[in-house]
Design a protein around this nucleic acid. Structure first.
Lengths: 214, 214
DNA sequence: TGTACATCAGTGAACGCGCGTTCACTGATGTAC
DNA sequence: TGTACATCAGTGAACGCGCGTTCACTGATGTAC
C-alpha cells in the first residue's frame, strides 16, 4: 500500500455500514474485514470507535457546511443594494442543492448523509450530537435566521415547530429514499430520482412553512 | 406476587428503556433489573428478545388501530347520505386524537409510541417492520385511501411522497417532543403541550398535503 | 379428606460468543553524523 | 557513502466484559382418585 490508503478504506467501509445498519449495530470487525484492513487499524488511526464515528460524520458534514456558506454568501450578495428579500423557495433550493452537490463531490449519495444524520439523533450517540452542534451550529443558525426573515408573518414559536416538521420530513424521506423509490417503481410503475423527489419536497415544505399562522 | 404481574412489569420497563435508548442498545439485564424480576423471566415469558420487542410494540399499536378504526367508522357514518366528503383536516384531527387517546388509555405518552415507531424504521429490526406491516397495514391503507380522496387534485405520485413527508414530520417531531419542548422553554420562555404542538402540526401538514401540485 | 402427581411461575448459575481495546512486535522508510 | 537510530504504519493474538440464552431446579397451586 503506497503511503497508506488504510484510513480512506476504513472511512469508506464505515460510512456505508453505519448508514446501512446503524452505529452500534456495526462492529469494528465487520468494518475492518469489509475494508480489507487489520482489526487493530481502527484504534491505531482513530483511537476508538466513537472517534471513527465522528470522523465518518465530519468527512461528509464539513464539505456540506462550506458549500452551504458559499451558496448563502452568493444568494445574499445577489440581493445587496436591492430591496427584494431572499425568499423561502430560494433558501430551500439552496439547501437541497448544497446537499446534493456536496455529497456528490465525495462520490456519495444524499441518502447516506441523511441516514447518518438521522441515526445520530435516534441512536443514543450523545458524543455525536454534541460534535454536530459544535461543527454545524453556526451554519444552521444562519440558515434558519434567513428562513425566518423570509416568513415575517409567522410567529417565532410556530416557526420553531415548523423547522422540525421540515427537518423530520426531509431527513425521513431522503434517508429512506432507496426503499421508497423501489416501492414507487413496483407499485406505481414510476421511476424517480433524488432530484425529482427534492423537486416535490421543496414546494411542499414551502407551503407548510408559509401557511397562515392560526 | 399475586398471580404474576411479572409480564406487565417487564413490558413497562422494556417500553420505557427501548424508547429511551433503542432496541439493540438496551440489554435484557437492564430491563429485568429495572423491572425487579429475574433475568431468565424474559425468555421464560416471551421466548426471546425479539418477541419481547414485538410484544412491547403490539401492546401500544393494537389499541391505536382499534381506536382509529372506530373513529374512522364514526367519521364516515356522519357523512353517509350527504354529499360532503371527509376533509383533510378532519382526517388529520382523527389521526392525532387517536394517537393521544390510545396512548393515554395505557397511561403512556404519545412520544413513547412515536419513538418506538421511529426506532423500528431506523434500527435494523426487520422482524419488527414486518410485524408492524402485518398488524397495521390494513388500517394504514384505509386512512391513506380516505386522505387521497380528500385531495382529488393531487397526483398519485405526489401524494405518495407527501405521505412520507407527513410521516417524517410527525414521527420526528413527536418522538423528540420532550427535548424540543425543553428547548422552547429555555430559549423562548414558552410553555407547550403535546395538544398544542399537534394543533400547530395539523394545519401545517394540511397545507403541505393540499398545496398546488406543480 | 388425604395422598400422589402434574402444572407452572420463577430462579441461580452457567454457557458460548462477539465485542472494543490493548500490547508486544515487525518491517519499511527517514534522519543524523 | 555507510552505519546507527528513530519514526511510523501495520499486525496477530490475546484481554476482560457484557451479551442473549439455556438448563436443572424449587416451591406453590391445582387436579385426580
Amino acid at each position: 500500500m503506497a503511503q497508506s490508503d488504510t484510513v480512506e478504506r476504513i472511512l469508506d467501509a464505515a460510512s456505508a455500514l453505519f448508514a446501512e445498519r446503524g452505529y452500534s449495530e456495526t462492529s469494528l470487525r465487520t468494518i475492518t474485514s469489509t475494508a480489507g484492513v487489520n482489526l487493530a487499524a481502527v484504534n491505531y488511526h482513530f483511537g476508538s470507535k466513537k472517534e471513527l464515528i465522528q470522523a465518518v460524520f465530519g468527512r461528509i458534514l464539513t464539505p456540506f457546511c462550506l458549500q452551504l456558506e458559499k451558496e448563502l454568501d452568493q444568494l445574499q450578495a445577489s440581493r445587496s443594494g436591492y430591496d427584494t428579500p431572499v425568499t423561502v423557495d430560494e433558501l430551500l433550493e439552496v439547501l437541497f442543492r448544497t446537499l446534493i452537490r456536496s455529497t456528490d463531490a465525495l462520490g456519495e449519495r444524499p441518502s447516506l448523509f441523511m441516514r447518518l444524520l438521522g441515526l445520530a439523533y435516534t441512536q443514543s450517540q450523545d458524543h455525536l450530537r454534541h460534535y454536530i452542534i459544535d461543527q454545524f451550529g453556526s451554519y444552521y443558525s444562519r440558515f434558519t435566521g434567513l428562513l425566518q426573515q423570509a416568513i415575517p408573518n409567522v410567529s417565532p414559536v410556530t416557526f420553531y415547530w415548523r423547522l422540525y416538521f421540515m427537518l423530520g420530513a426531509s431527513v425521513f424521506t431522503l434517508s429512506s429514499y432507496d426503499p421508497l423509490s423501489n416501492i414507487l417503481r413496483t407499485d406505481y410503475g414510476e421511476e424517480s430520482s433524488i432530484e425529482n423527489t427534492v423537486a416535490l419536497l421543496v414546494p411542499s415544505l414551502s407551503a407548510m412553512l408559509k401557511c397562515e399562522d392560526s
